[in-house]
């Protein structure tokens, strides 16, 4: 029997995932981390990107989060996502649109908008698209 760890993913709006997993991959601020069962207590912030919950050798669930927090206890992993969506629910058209909009704002140097927020939006849209792409490539 393989060891497993309980994983909870919640966003501010609802519970996204709750169940046992073999491993969890998260986009931590200092680089991607993979959490196995009995990991030492660990706490960090998350970047926008893909969270992948490996339930068994053949099955894993991808989620997109736009940032949040990760807490690890030896037998419980909690992900507090700002917003989280299942990868297959990502609306590709909306993501592309958001990306274009952010790029336009960044390109338009004359407008007085908040560059930091536009950049963040662009980053989020790109990560959404990348998550979707990977999800498709795996063909699941």
């Amino acid at each position: 029997m393989t060891m497993s760890v309980h994983v909870d993913i919640v966003s501010a709006e609802r519970e996204i995932f709750s169940g046992l997993a073999e491993m969890v991959f998260c986009p931590a601020e200092e680089g991607e981390v993979g959490i196995s069962p009995r990991h030492a207590p660990f706490i960090t912030r998350l970047n926008p990107g893909e969270v992948r919950v490996k339930v068994s050798a053949t099955e894993s669930y991808p989620f997109f989060i736009s940032g949040g927090m990760l807490e690890v206890q030896p037998h419980v992993v909690t992900i507090l996502a700002d917003t989280a969506i299942r990868a297959k629910d990502i609306d590709e058209a909306a993501a592309i649109q958001a990306k274009q909009r952010a790029e336009e704002i960044l390109a338009d140097k004359t407008s007085r908008v908040d560059y930091a927020s536009a950049e963040r939006q662009l980053f989020q849209a790109i990560m959404q698209l990348r998550t979707l792409e990977r999800f498709r490539k795996r063909g699941s």
């Binding site: 601020e29 207590p41 660990f42 960090t44």
Partner: peptide, 12 residues
């Protein structure tokens, strides 16, 4: 016990 903090305890 204590957590491992990334990037550091204060920020997190």
């Amino acid at each position: 016990w204590d957590y491992i903090y990334e990037p550091d305890a204060k920020e997190v």
